[in-house]
């Protein structure tokens, strides 16, 4: 390559700088102001927004909801994903067809998926109708109406949506385990469980790490499902951090304050990404 080839970088550099880097710097700056998005005038208030965040009960709730969803979904999706992957690994010719079925929800838009589940989980929806028809009217519940149930429903939807993805990650990991190790284990009289515990599990640690980080990252940014299923309600009890940022900014015109929350989320995501990059670099070796 020659020196003048720097022109190769120019289009990407210009687009990325104007529409990504400058807005990010803008968000950092806005987070130090009290701008409401409407008036021309605004004041630089320093770290006031960040101090306000400490006493913001609504934000604290959004953080708790996000953590609940992240924890529940990451654990479930990784345990179930690994379990189904182990079963699938022994399914012979059926692997491909089954894999495709489990993976399908991952390619469909989250908004569409949320509407499907809304029709199932709402009070007059599919699930309650079936329960009624089966004479189990006593277990009918409002899966969306109160905060606790709604958060559980959101978790179920996210588990269903991302299970296939994590299962495929695990399946790929499991298939890299050399057959000889299992044979050696059999020679030593190892049972099926021991094979899993002492051969499969230690061999797929990098795969587990990636899969867990991926699920954490996805759920930390959760927005779409909450928007369709509960709209953050009742009240603001099911708001996630991203949902909170968007509503504070575009619903309540607190552009400065919402930017401060976004910067806070950025700091957390950045730390997780650095861990992720470290881990995937190790994997390549």
């Amino acid at each position: 390559m020659r020196k003048k080839s720097i022109l190769f970088v120019l289009p990407a550099f210009v687009i990325y700088t104007f529409l990504m880097i400058i807005p990010i710097i803008g968000a950092f700056y806005l987070s130090l102001t009290d701008w409401n998005g409407i008036s021309q005038a605004y004041h630089v208030v320093g770290i006031k927004n960040y101090i306000d965040m400490l006493s913001d009960a609504r934000l604290r709730n959004a953080i708790m909801v996000t953590l609940k969803i992240t924890l529940t979904v990451s654990i479930s999706v990784n345990v179930l994903g690994l379990f189904v992957a182990c079963l699938l690994n022994r399914a012979g010719k059926m692997i491909n067809a089954l894999r495709s079925i489990f993976f399908l929800p991952y390619v469909i838009s989250t908004v569409a998926i949320s509407f499907i589940w809304l029709s199932i989980l709402s009070y007059t929806g599919v699930l309650n109708t079936i329960l009624n028809a089966l004479g189990m009217g006593s277990v009918i519940a409002d899966y969306i109406g109160n905060a606790q149930n709604a958060i559980r429903s959101i978790c179920v939807i996210e588990i269903w949506r991302t299970l296939g993805f994590h299962m495929v990650l695990y399946l790929a990991s499991i298939q890299t385990v050399p057959e000889e190790l299992y044979e050696a284990c059999t020679m030593d009289g190892g049972t099926g469980w021991q094979k899993f515990r002492f051969v499969t599990l230690p061999m797929i640690v990098p795969g587990i790490t990636i899969s867990v980080i991926m699920s954490i990252m996805t759920e930390m940014k959760q927005y779409d499902v909450v928007k369709v299923i509960t709209n953050g309600g009742p009240g603001y009890s099911t708001e996630t951090v991203t949902y909170n940022i968007v509503t504070q900014a575009f619903g309540n015109n607190m552009l400065g304050y919402s930017s401060a929350i976004a910067v806070f989320l950025f700091a957390i995501i950045a730390v997780i990404t650095i861990i992720q990059l470290r881990v995937s670099r190790k994997m390549e070796v």
């Binding site: 807005p23 990010i24 991203t242 940022i245 910067v263 989320l265």
Partner: peptide, 11 residues
């Protein structure tokens, strides 16, 4: 890659 995209919406 480390940026949650929600940060750029307001700007």
């Amino acid at each position: 890659l480390m940026v949650p995209y929600v940060i750029v919406y307001v700007p």
